[in-house]
Design a binder for these strands. Structure first.
Lengths: 250, 250
DNA sequence: CGGTAGTTTGAACTACGTCAAGGGTCGTGG
DNA sequence: CCACGACCCTTGACGTAGTTCAAACTACCG
């Protein structure tokens, strides 16, 4: 009955602890907010970054650690999360190559407010916060783009708050799957594959529910024929079906 | 049994539809991110703003309207909210004089993503988005401070997401009251008064619950002696009690 | 002093969490 | 290459925090 197959998820990674100089430059060029700069300017900026590799599951930093660095992902996936007293984690974001995280502003004190964990083995470029801030004042267009990025994230966080405040678990999960597909989707013979390892636990952390509820909802979606799934992966086969569920008003 | 009195909430407002030129300059000087500029520079910036007055309950704009302006509050209180299909509103922020809202980035398209409503009669200063953006590139330190402000809001939104994901209604309400008190609290003979009209409905919109649940929780807090309340107002009489409830881990 | 809008409280209901047990999938080591 | 063990997933049964519906009550304004 169920499609039985190995995980189709495949994240490209070179050797951990190693980003070639070419890769570094390629990444920095690809980062949206550096796109206006010349090759020389980026090369100059590149010198201020140092690279760090992490294995799957490693923590880049914990909430409460002194906040010193800003990271840009070169390869792999990183999740930002918060721990709760009851031991339940809440995932705030799932980041892909080209995206940044870490400290940016001094406004929230000098401690990281959330924890960053490698979801796959990753290569990240790190820069000292103050160095990054001086880049921003040096190149106002870069500053503007960073502002736009942060604004977009605020926008997304507000959308999440609305979801959590007013939608059922089923709809939150449908919406989350659609977002993940838009960000990480890759055409594949099983459907539009969400290209990252994703456990029911993690899906629950993203949608403010429990692994059990996530599993029940996922099972139901699969019965409806909207998705196909396996251990740590989900692919969407009927976007319209999911979208309809996500949007229906009580 | 209950303390019976008139609403202690008193928001200073001059005539609606009227901000004196002195008030405008004073407000602009008071806005954190203009604090480094000279009086002349601010006077120059002032010319690009035009003022708008609104009555209590008025909508400044609706989600979906074309996004053209950025606002800075001179007097009064404004709430940012989103409507849901089921007619339930979700409040995202409650803003006070000196704070800005509206469009800032072009990143989220050219439509407002949320609705802004006057909670009291207000005076607001409005500026065209592109004009504001050119101020930001003209004065990099201002741009940096705006970035810090937006980062702080993102931070706050993440904290809210965590709350909604992992805390009971009782704790969310306790936490929200403490935040409101920190932002809007004024010493008063009834206690630390939250200086804004605040219905159970609005408290519910802020904490992702229903007016009924908000009322029950508020009643309980009052029985414990931590707060005193009336129609549309709440004052905190025992911060420690509330803090303890907010922090206790299951 | 009456009316309106806000608040309180009760009682029934339900979506979801919790606890528990069993089954599937994958990687590793023999 | 197979088999074991760890981890992940599924499903059921039950409990409960919080919603919903409804009805009274009360603070405040004109």
């Amino acid at each position: 009955m169920n499609t039985r197959r190995k995980t189709p998820v495949q994240i490209k990674t070179t050797e951990p602890h190693l980003c070639s100089i070419d890769l570094r430059m390629k990444i920095l060029h690809g980062v949206p907010f550096f796109s206006d700069l010349t090759h020389e300017q980026i090369a100059e900026i590149n010198r201020q970054f140092h690279e760090k590799g992490f294995e799957k599951g490693d923590y880049l930093y914990f909430a409460g650690d002194p906040a010193e660095s800003l990271f840009i992902i070169a390869e792999g996936r990183v999740k930002l999360l918060r721990h709760t007293a009851a031991g339940k984690d809440v995932m705030l974001d799932l980041l892909i190559p080209g995206e940044f995280f870490g400290t940016l502003s001094t406004a929230s004190g000098s401690l990281y407010q959330d924890t960053a964990q490698a979801v796959t083995s990753i290569c990240a470029l790190a820069i000292d916060r103050d160095n990054f801030r001086s880049i921003l004042t040096q190149y106002p267009t870069v500053g503007m783009k960073v502002l736009d990025t942060v604004s977009t994230r605020l926008e997304a966080a507000h959308a999440t708050i609305q979801q959590l405040s007013a939608q059922s678990a089923e709809k939150r999960i449908a919406t989350t799957l659609l977002h993940l597909a838009a960000k990480l989707g890759e055409s594949h013979d099983v459907g539009l594959l969400i290209q990252t390892p994703l456990t029911r636990d993690e899906l629950a952390e993203m949608t403010a529910t429990t692994p059990e509820t996530a599993s029940r909802v996922i099972s139901q979606f699969q019965k409806e024929g909207w998705i196909s799934t396996g251990r740590q992966w989900i692919a969407i086969s009927d976007i319209n079906g999911l979208t309809k569920i996500a949007q229906i008003q009580d």
